[in-house]
Design a protein around this nucleic acid. Structure first.
Lengths: 325, 325
DNA sequence: ACTATCCGTAGAAACGTTTCGATAAACCGT
DNA sequence: ACGGTTTATCGAAACGTTTCTACGGATAGT
């Protein structure tokens, strides 16, 4: 592999001159710089990333950690992240799995973005203590080296429940997320508050784990409830809503949007292709990513960071209809 | 940041002893090794990745390059890749975008897996010439440092067309992919061959770009054709099939599975949620990833690599029905 | 013409590891 | 008790950069 040394001897200058020339320092005259540059090109020189990282103590890399690679909104989120990072000359690296956690303390990146339930809070705080910059997207953490971009879960869940209530549905079921999920806890809390505000409304909470299977599993109980009249179901994310619709369609003779009214959360791509179209809560995943990137870069560069929040909107769908009285 | 030196002075041994001890060399007695280990733990030592990379000239990292992060089957593919790599102590890093290409010559990984149209063949061959190990998933390249895991596109496309023909459909439309896509070229070639084998069958080729919009765009022409009797449409991937169904459903009074029979390719998750369910060609994306990882590791370790191929199967769906005669 | 200033380049140390070869102490058999 | 062998540890070089400081020669000012 051709190194800076090879260029130095080919150009009959010292390696420091080569380094300065290639990095565009004004210590070197334009002529020598050009000469060195063309020799470098000719030899096909590419700087060694590891050496540069070691010496400069910076990587120009940001790591994003995901629980898995199959999330339905990762595409947009990562797009937003990457755009923003690239504008500032950083590269994005996506990681998943416990094994890769170690890359943070190994200083493989200048900062990391976390949307990964396999990190415990204490683990993240430990990294922050050691000086690593983090932006967390799936929890709230109080630390000088940690910031977050919050989804407005409260507003979203309130919107969802009020949409159901607004259709004349007073019997509400909510299918929850894993206890460990911050988003799930926040959404469920808002659900309770919204229902409590309506004296005539009732709420039943069903357990769930943010996956299709838990939506499906909630099916029997919901079908039972629906026998006594229309029921409005808020699944705390779209995947569960889809699982529930699956159950209702294949295992019961109930009709979605008439007997069982379903609304989800996240507006994943699938939602718009469901028949009937799934009502859901939407927010800009790109913006979420872009803000996360912006915050992280500010931290890395030592600029002040302001708290950001992503707003939500209701997407209507035929999975929620007017309650027939 | 605590380094091997700090441990050395804390333990009153040389840095080489620390290095040997921490790496489990048998040059060091168990007692000192344990002592050093516990001091390292106490100080919270984590090795510096850059330094190790530089010295060892290996990274234990594999990069996978994707055109974007939104592909519908990336989740499974990456899962297969990651599992296999982790079993062998390698970490996976996902990259996208032209900017990140440079990580290959910069020796940021021990090898790379390419499923990314933004790489030109010549670019990849250039890296291979410089000794970088590659596995390509979206093309075929002849080079000692390049291997591929091939999808059986020919078999899949043949299966799809024969399924349509088998339902009594003799007027076939095929919605193609970008000219630059290897998969698209292979599939289309097989389509032509299959249709030609049936003297009474006719084929019309429509342009496409593997995205939903091109499926939608093919809609008018297909609707026109369907006015003269049922037509079988093979969209070279599921996304286009979904776009086409969208058009037919919203812009025409034709019925899918009766007037227009649609089959896709890839069996993305969405396919099973379409109404009617989309017929498609399925193959194991996990296995695809696992084989790619296995090949790359063999190359890195200098073991012989055998050519692999992923097999396909037909998934029936109501989007293709019996042609009413 | 002589010192002071500046400018372009060179030398060398450092970043944090790994690993080869050297060294000194302990062991063994005779 | 002695040379020879083994054993545990150490010293130093190297990986490929960056960057501080030093240096020598040219230019400029008086």
């Amino acid at each position: 592999m051709v190194s800076i040394k090879d260029i130095a001897s080919a150009a009959k200058v010292s390696i420091s001159t080569v380094s300065y020339a290639l990095n565009g320092s004004d210590r070197i005259t334009k002529e020598t710089a050009d000469r060195i540059q063309s020799i470098a090109d000719e030899l096909g020189y590419v700087p060694n990333r590891a050496a540069r990282m070691l010496k400069k103590r910076e990587t120009m890399l940001v790591g994003v950690f995901l629980t898995d690679f199959s999330g339905h909104f990762y595409g947009d989120l990562l797009f937003g992240l990457k755009e923003e990072l690239n504008r500032r000359d950083y590269d994005l690296i996506v990681c998943s799995g416990r094994r890769s956690h170690r890359m943070i303390p190994e200083r493989a990146f200048d900062g990391a973005i976390i949307l990964d339930a396999t990190f415990a809070d204490e683990e993240l705080l430990g990294y922050a203590d050691r000086g690593h910059k983090l932006v967390v997207l799936d929890r709230e953490l109080e630390h000088a080296n940690v910031n977050q971009v919050l989804l407005d879960n409260k507003a979203g869940a309130t919107l969802a429940v009020e949409h159901l209530l607004g259709q004349g549905l007073s019997r509400i079921c909510a299918v929850g997320g894993p206890e460990s999920a911050y988003d799930a806890r926040q959404r469920m809390r808002a659900v309770r508050q919204s229902v409590e505000r309506m004296p005539e409304a009732s709420l039943e909470e069903l357990p769930g784990a943010f996956d299709k299977a838990s939506g499906y599993a909630a099916g029997p109980r919901i079908a039972e409830a629906a026998r006594e009249g229309p029921v409005g179901v808020f699944c705390l994310n779209d995947e569960m809503a889809i699982g529930l619709c699956d159950y209702v369609r294949t295992q019961t003779s109930l009709q979605i949007g008439r007997d069982v009214h379903v609304i989800g959360y996240d507006n994943i791509e699938l939602a718009q292709y469901m028949q009937p179209r799934l009502a859901t809560i939407d927010y800009s995943k790109r913006k979420w990513g872009a803000l996360a990137a912006e915050q992280l870069l500010k931290m890395i560069e030592g600029r002040p960071v302001e708290q950001e929040r992503i707003y939500v909107r209701l997407v209507e769908g035929e999975s929620v209809g007017q309650a027939s009285l």
